[in-house]
Design a protein around this nucleic acid. Structure first.
Lengths: 334, 334
DNA sequence: ATAATTTTTGGGAACGTTCCCAAAAAACTA
DNA sequence: TAGTTTTTTGGGAACGTTCCCAAAAATTAT
């Protein structure tokens, strides 16, 4: 491996000049010496040692991405979006999985410090958010939680999607609409209270009485969906549509309904949330509220670079979701 | 941010001593000074600057993972496996996506050089394999291709799985077994010729005549699977089972068969290859040859660290696959 | 042609570690 | 106790950049 000095010797200039040319910042270097240097560098196949550069400049052009699990398609998409954008800007991405475990947050936050990353893209947990206070680095939060933290945040406007989905069901003649929320108050930072508020507003707007039987509380998993199907199958006055908490529930519901001879969507319309890859493949294809996963990653990357380069103050971004209309909602107006 | 000198001053020792203690290699430093140093470091909240360290030692404790697309569950699992192992060993992972584009391989290989990574985990394309020659770094190839390259390789023993699947079908009474291969010779480095060899060996072993109608050549996608269903539905003497080229084909086949009123598995048994997440969720749940994705990542990480630390010469690993028995194979012996 | 100004170049220090070598301190030997 | 060996410590150089400042060269003005 050649260094800047080798290039300097070959080009017959000083290392300072070589540095000026090769670091891109070649103001005040005459065109002909610049050409000389570039030629010499090429001839040697010089490649810059970014460690030395970083040590001097205190910039690593590296971002760390701290997410729960890259194996989850949502996070994979976010990671991809982030990497794509960062790459364009000359940044690299260090990937790390937390599995929501506190000690890993600590560990990786420390890693960020030793490695000297220029910024942190992180999906925080409720307690790791506090650890961030001790870190003097640009930080962008991934997700909808922690609205009032002092950091920039990039999430999606799920509530608007919920509303849109509800209105879509109404337009298709549904008035007996079930809604699902989890046992726990928040799931991965989504405040489900808010979803219910949206739901109640919707009912009020259309003069529909709230029927508490239509508020379901199951686990956010396929098993939860199975359970939901069983509950619905025993109801005297079941809903005609379900707004599931997420796609997993919706899919569990679909699968179990098949066994219970409930036809989807004829007997029951379903809308999911997330648009996981399976949703467009199962039969029938699931109508769902699609989160702009990749865009979230891209935007987060864009924001953190802006923060790093001082072009932006911390802000909250809520990226629009999209109601992906497929085959699980029946029009029952006729 | 404090440096080693600050710690030294506080502990009243020299920077050398601090370095000795903090770099782990504290042979020849007395217990009491060691304690002093550790106390001082803790007191200041010292965190090591790994840039400076790397510059001096020429080791970054960083591996680059070059894969086609993290959004593909297969690669996400590989990445996860690799990261989990690397983390345990104190290494970090830089993630990069190629989309099989040549110029990105070049770009990222150069990145590996400037960043001074300690090793490269890469799923190469046919032409990028040549670029590796110019790189004097530990390299581990991901996947089954390029058997005769000089690099260590970690893949899976898919052929053995194919054989097992074939035998499993036979055991369930199937003799009219269709097999799928792509138009092209290789798909992502899998030599399909070999699959056919296995198939022919199987037929021979059980004295079954080769029926060339049972060799199908469709695209490795859901659309390919749809097409396959249509072909089969028009056959006079259709196979009773299909060994699909991958899960995507199998799923496309399942979905299209539903439309064509071909019952899976009563009318047609299906086995896929890959075990993508959807396979265990669709109805009916797909029996498939599961690749040890995560293990591949783990093993690759293990191997590259061994190569880096000089404990291992380049070798080929073929990790065993697993026939995941679910609901798409019918026993037709009775 | 000389002075003043601007442009271009080079030398040294610094970033924070680790490593080498020598010096100091401690432990042992006779 | 003095000499010898071993253990422990400290100082300086080095890794390869970038940045600061001054010097040299080129350009312009008088």
């Amino acid at each position: 491996m050649y260094s800047i000095l080798d290039v300097a010797k070959l080009a017959n200039v000083s290392k300072s000049t070589v540095s000026r040319v090769l670091s891109g910042n070649s103001y005040g270097v005459s065109d002909k010496t610049k050409a000389k240097v570039e030629k010499a560098a090429k001839e040697l196949g010089y490649v810059k040692n970014s460690l030395a550069s970083s040590l001097r400049t205190n910039k690593t052009k590296t971002i760390i991405l701290i997410i729960p699990d890259i194996t989850n398609n949502f996070w994979a998409e976010v990671a991809r979006g982030a990497q794509d954008y960062l790459e364009k800007k000359g940044y690299s991405l260090i990937l790390v999985n937390t599995d929501w475990e506190e000690h890993k947050y600590s560990k990786y936050l420390e890693l960020a410090l030793t490695k000297g990353v220029d910024g942190i893209l992180i999906n925080t947990s409720s307690s790791s958010i506090n650890q961030l206070k001790n870190i003097d680095l640009p930080i962008v939060l991934l997700g909808n939680a922690y609205l009032h933290s002092p950091y920039a945040r990039v999430g999606s406007n799920t509530l608007e999607g919920i509303n849109e989905a509800l209105e879509y069901l109404y337009k298709n003649g549904h008035k007996k609409i079930g809604i699902v929320a989890s046992h726990t108050d928040t799931v991965q930072g989504h405040n489900l209270e808010n979803r219910l508020t949206i739901y109640h507003d919707f009912l009020e707007r259309h003069n529909i009485d709230f029927n508490e039987d239509y508020y379901f509380s199951v686990d956010y998993s396929m098993e939860g969906g199975n359970e939901l199907a069983k509950i619905i199958s025993t109801m005297e006055n079941p809903p005609t549509a379900i707004l599931a908490g997420n796609d997993l529930i919706a899919i569990g519901l679909i699968n179990e309904c098949r066994k219970l001879n409930i036809d989807i969507p004829k007997d029951l319309s379903i809308i999911g949330v997330d648009d996981i890859p399976i949703s467009s493949i199962i039969y029938p294809r699931l109508t769902t509220i699609a989160k702009p996963k990749r865009k979230i990653g891209e935007k987060a990357a864009e924001v953190i670079i802006n923060v790093i380069e001082g072009n932006e103050t911390n802000r909250n971004y809520k990226l629009p979701v999209n109601l992906e209309i497929r085959d699980t909602v029946e029009n029952i107006t006729k």
